[in-house]
Computed example of a mutant assay.
Amino acid sequence: MSSNATLPDLAKAGISLPNTPLIRGALGHLKKYTSPTTVNHCIRSAYFAILLSRKIPRSSSEPLDVELIVFSTIMHDLGWATDKTLLSKDKRVEVDGANMARSYLEEVKLSNGWDKHRTQLMWDAIALHATPSFALHKEAEVKIAHIGIMADFWGPNYPGYPITIEENKEIVDAFPRLGFKEQFLDIMCGLCALKPGTTYDNFVADYGVEFGLDGKGTDKEDFAKKRFALSSPQIFYPAIGSYEQDGD
Rank of each mutant, 00 (worst) to 15 (best):
P36H: 07
S45T: 13
G179A: 10
L136K: 15
A130R: 11
S231C: 10
A125R: 01
D90P: 03
E94H: 06
Y33P: 02
A49T: 02
K216D: 13
A46Y: 02
N99L: 13
Y47N: 01
G217S: 13
W154A: 15
Y158I: 04
G208W: 04
T119Y: 01
R44T: 04
G14W: 07
N99F: 00
I69M: 01
D173A: 14
G97N: 07
I43Q: 05
T34Q: 10
H117K: 15
S59I: 13
E221F: 09
G155T: 08
D214A: 09
N4H: 10
K225D: 11
L128D: 11
H41F: 09
E210M: 12
L110N: 11
N19R: 13
M1T: 12
A5T: 04
A224M: 06
H146G: 00
S53K: 02
F134Q: 12
P21I: 11
S61G: 14
I163G: 03
G215Y: 08
A193T: 04
G197T: 06
V95G: 00
V204N: 03
L27K: 03
T164Q: 08
K32S: 14
S53W: 00
V95T: 10
K32W: 04
T85Y: 05
C189A: 06
I69Y: 01
H146M: 12
G212Q: 01
K195C: 09
A5W: 03
C42S: 14
P63H: 09
D246V: 06
A151I: 06
A224H: 05
F71I: 00
I163N: 05
I74S: 05
D186P: 01
